[in-house]
Amino acid sequence: MTEYKLVVVGAGGVGKSALTIQLIQNHFVDEYDPTIEDSYRKQVVIDGETCLLDILDTAGQEEYSAMRDQYMRTGEGFLCVFAINNTKSFEDIHHYREQIKRVKDSEDVPMVLVGNKCDLPSRTVDTKQAQDLARSYGIPFIETSAKTRQGVDDAFYTLVREIRKHKEKMSKDGKKKKKKSKTKCVIM
């Protein structure tokens, strides 16, 4: 069974824990209790493949930012979460993405942009803004509501699919490099 290491990042209060708990335990946590770091595991079937999701729910508070490099190193894919009623959390996505790329030393890291709290009427981040940002990053965008469960499975499952595509691409690139290195030079 394939294991996928997913990391949920975003500013404090955007609903990272609520999304994760909704996926794992099928219930909505409405009281806000700032996370330092929590880890969850769940076995699911995605596109006919049974897999184990190892999900790291991270601290959004700035005082825990020193811990970010460590979990970013171990993560295979990242859910970059903002709240649709919090423009600052949307603007912060850029910083999370840049930090992930720096730590992973790669421009090509599996990510999904997630606009959470889409059940709320007080939207300050337009869907088109988020779609445009995701398009500019070359990553999928999904709106979710941890409260109603809308888009929750889709967000995590899409990230797994992005990781699969990335692994497939990397193995193809690896095979191309191996083929090239088999060419021999004969000096007579």
Rank of each mutant, 00 (worst) to 15 (best):
R102I: 07
I93Y: 06
C118K: 07
L120W: 11
D126R: 06
A83Q: 13
K117H: 14
E107F: 09
K101M: 15
L120A: 12
K117E: 12
D119V: 04
P121T: 14
Q99E: 08
C80I: 11
I93A: 08
V114G: 01
L113F: 14
R123D: 15
C118I: 11
R97Y: 15
D119N: 09
V81L: 12
R123C: 14
V114S: 02
F90I: 14
E63S: 06
D126F: 08
D105H: 09
F78S: 01
R123K: 13
Q70A: 09
V112G: 00
M67N: 02
K117V: 15
V125N: 12
C118A: 12
L79S: 00
K117T: 13
P110F: 03
S106D: 12
E91T: 07
R97F: 15
S106F: 11
V114F: 04
P110C: 04
S65I: 08
H94W: 14
R102S: 09
A83I: 02
L120V: 13
G77T: 03
L79C: 05
S122Y: 12
M67R: 01
L120C: 12
P110R: 03
Y64P: 00
V125P: 12
M72I: 06
G75R: 04
F82W: 08
C80R: 00
E107I: 11
S122M: 09
Y71K: 00
Y71V: 02
P121L: 11
D126Q: 09
Y64T: 00
R97L: 15
V103A: 07
V103T: 08
A83H: 09
D126L: 08
K101G: 07
G115H: 06
R73V: 07
E107D: 12
R102W: 04
V112T: 03
K104D: 03
N116M: 15
F82G: 15
V103E: 07
D69K: 03
E91W: 05
V125S: 13
N86C: 08
V125W: 11
L113D: 00
M72W: 01
D105I: 08
H95C: 07
L79V: 09
K104S: 10
A66H: 03
N116R: 00
F78W: 02
G115S: 08
I100N: 03
R102A: 14
F78L: 03
Q99V: 04
M72G: 03
N86S: 12
R73E: 07
P121S: 13
L120P: 09
A83C: 06
Q70N: 12
K88H: 12
Q70Y: 14
D119H: 07
V81Q: 06
R97N: 06
C118L: 10
M67A: 01
D92K: 08
H94L: 14
F90D: 03
R68N: 03
G77A: 14
M67I: 12
D69S: 06
C118D: 13
K88M: 08
M111D: 00
V114H: 00
R102G: 08
T74E: 15
L113G: 02
G77C: 13
Q70P: 04
V112S: 01
S122C: 11
I84E: 15
K88F: 09
K88Y: 07
F78I: 03
C118Y: 10
R102F: 07
R68L: 01
T87E: 15
D69Y: 03
R68C: 04
K104W: 14
L113E: 00
G77M: 12
D92A: 13
E107K: 09
C80E: 02
V81D: 01
D69I: 01
S106V: 11
R97Q: 12
C80M: 12
M72Q: 04
